[in-house]
């Protein structure tokens, strides 16, 4: 029979699990920088995004031109629009990469704090990170729950 005076082993289990889970999420966010640290991947991603937006613009222009017999005006228009879309994509990707990098740096700082055994400081840096996130405001960033370490990259 369990001793009524002795604190139940289940007491605080929820907190312990939550603490472990948080620590694990932090570790994962740090270790999963596979994609974000690869400059090659990021470069290729930007290159394909540039090319594909332009290609889509040109394709729409060509199709509309043959359909409406307006060659070459719609091709020219949609070439320019495609180039604009490509630039939009590029800026968006670069912003995301920046945000991911900033987050990683904040996380690295947070990890250092944890290694010092200074729990309070660690908590502070995590709060900093949370504050920082909304400010990075790329469109995929909003509404994203929880630790956002290892998302989108390439």
């Amino acid at each position: 029979m369990p001793d009524p005076d002795e604190p139940s082993p289940l007491k605080g289990l929820g907190e312990r699990i939550a603490a472990r889970r948080e620590a694990r999420a932090r570790d994962q966010a740090r270790n999963s920088s596979l994609a974000s640290t690869s400059g090659l991947g990021l470069g290729l991603r930007i290159a394909t995004e540039l090319v594909s937006a332009l290609a889509v613009g040109v394709a729409i222009g060509l199709i509309l031109d043959t359909w409406l017999n307006t060659a070459p005006w719609l091709l020219i228009t949609f070439f320019i629009l495609g180039a604009a879309a490509a630039m939009t994509n590029l800026i968006r990707t670069a912003k995301e990469a920046d945000a991911a990098q900033a987050r990683e740096r904040a996380e690295a700082a947070g990890a250092d704090g944890a290694r010092d055994g200074n729990a309070r400081r660690d908590g502070d840096t995590r709060a900093d990170r949370d504050r920082e996130r909304p400010g990075t405001g790329s469109r995929t960033d909003t509404n994203r729950p929880g630790n956002g370490g290892n998302e989108r990259e390439g």
């Binding site: 394909t48 995004e49 937006a53 290609a55 889509v56 604009a84 879309a85 939009t88 994509n89």
Partner: peptide
């Protein structure tokens, strides 16, 4: 522009 950007997603993904 947004429409073209959206349509370019599968192309860039595949490419």
């Amino acid at each position: 522009i947004e429409l073209i950007s959206y349509l370019s997603r599968p192309v860039s993904l595949a490419l």
